[in-house]
Design a protein around this nucleic acid. Structure first.
Lengths: 286, 286
DNA sequence: GCGTTTTTGCACGGTTTTGCGCGAAGTTTC
DNA sequence: GAAACTTCGCGCAAAACCGTGCAAAAACGC
């Protein structure tokens, strides 16, 4: 812990003529990053963190080389070095949230990929709160000429890496726990838009096909989002199935497509067929 | 084969002092790229980067030739040379902002400290764009029970570390270069608030006491911020003095206090006295 | 065709980057 | 709280990469 703080307060040493720098120095004292460093930064931006060992393997270089890269990126203020790797410097680091993000990481990724594949270029969409919608943002990094409206600061951060994406951040009260913007003002903000697609997540999906959540303020925002979109996608991994939460957000009946990673129970499947809600079960591509 | 095609692309070699440049020089001092260079540039644009070795193989020329090409493309400002190849200039990294943040780092810190000292606990305030206002946010980490409304994502990130601070993020279009939220929607958002203090920065402060900036959209937002606050603080280090920028944001006359790090010229000082604008010159504490 | 200009290839010395070994610092476990 | 294990940073030597001068080759103008 202390080590992290020391790091924050040590950039003075790089202020003057720093010695061996593994990247070419420009006139203006900024540094042109080499290939690997650029890519590491991209990775960090999309994943939120990078691990020394993984990077070494990925680029087929030794650990020392990666460490040098990370040290430079940290010096330049782009990353924050931590034991074993590096993270983005964004302050929104909530332990519980990080944990939730890692849960079913693989499942979320395949769901997100399927969802992103259903979203064309040249369109507008809303991404709301949730770790799965963040995964969708990551999969949208390759899309071009899209406008994304979001109340999720993490989504906004991720999508800055995509120059072909205009980002509109919704106003509102910032929730520290997950970087979410919620409240009356957020609702008002979304009311000023009408987009082609909405991608929403949920805390729970019960047997009746109802989407449930814990925070009433968040639910109000989500309801508005659903209202302001032409097509509505739900991204939701199997762990949410059969769970419960106090606030009702919507019914699957109101949505166009559900992207998930495991087949629904037969009765729910039948209901979806009734409602005309498509169900897309994404499969792990080994 | 390719070398023969090169011919086709080297017109107008009309004289001028010929340096040793591997591309023909035109009257207007721009350079006509040869066939290979054009294609390299295209490749770079589509791939994001090019590798010396790959290019040499692709064009069936030696490494030196490619290096010469890249050197020229870099000279012309089209590419950024890095070890082993070259990347697009507008890479993923938005330097420039980092750089600005580091300029006069010390001065900004003392200015920010003075400004934060003038802000009590239990109040509401707006922090707008600018690296100096970010410094203020850092100095506000110790305050308690404050509400901060901001259109600066960095400020929001910084203040998440202060649990005694409610953060309201303004909605709007996200500007990648500095994490700023600007535009009509941002203005609308601020119009819904009335706060105790506004802390604003500026790109330039001229001899007439006018605050100037480059981006008109940003200026509109700033004007609104000034209107929605009971007391207005300007934080502005000495490097901004006497600078110029196209858009007029406000006059010192409209502000309550200026926090800076060097005394103003006498005439401007007199004007401030006239206007009742306090000037607080913060001193470096060794 | 012949002189001139431009471009390319080759050789060489200098610079940057990388890998390796080692002691120090940090993290985990019991 | 101490031992076992990782991870880290640094110095040094090898390897890869870079720029430059010079001569051969190609293309051009007339």
């Amino acid at each position: 812990m202390l080590s992290r703080l020391t790091r924050l307060f040590s950039p003075l040493k790089s202020g003057g003529a720093s010695l061996k720098v593994n990247a070419t120095r420009r006139r203006d004292d900024t540094v042109a990053l080499n290939f690997r460093q650029t890519e590491i930064l991209e990775l960090a931006r999309s994943e939120g963190r990078v691990v020394v060992e993984d990077l070494a393997q990925r680029f087929d270089v030794t650990l020392q080389t990666i460490r040098r890269d990370l040290a430079e990126l940290a010096d330049a203020g782009h990353l924050e070095r931590v034991h074993g790797g590096a993270t983005l410097r964004t302050g929104v680091t909530n332990l519980g949230y990080e944990q939730r993000r890692r849960m079913n990481e693989g499942a979320k990724a395949v769901i997100a990929r399927a969802c992103a594949a259903a979203i064309p270029n040249n369109c507008s969409l809303i991404l709301n709160l949730g770790t799965t919608t963040e995964a969708v943002a990551r999969e949208l990094l390759g899309h071009s000429n899209i406008t994304v409206v979001t109340n999720n600061m993490n989504v906004a951060n991720i999508l800055t890496a995509n120059p072909g994406c205009e980002i509109m951040v919704a106003g509102g009260a910032l929730r520290r726990s997950d970087g979410g913007l919620v409240g009356e003002l957020t609702t008002q903000f979304f009311e000023q838009f009408k987009v082609d697609y909405a991608v929403i997540g949920t805390s729970a999906l019960d047997r009746d096909g109802d989407l449930l959540d814990f925070d009433l303020a968040e639910v109000r925002v989500s309801k508005t989002i659903i209202r302001q979109a032409r097509r509505r996608f739900l991204v939701c991994d199997h762990s949410k199935l059969g769970q419960s939460a106090p606030a009702r957000l919507a019914s699957l009946a109101e949505l166009d497509t559900l992207f998930t990673d495991a087949p629904l129970p037969d009765d729910l499947m039948a209901k979806c067929a009734d409602w005309g809600t498509m169900v897309h079960v994404a499969r792990q591509t080994v």
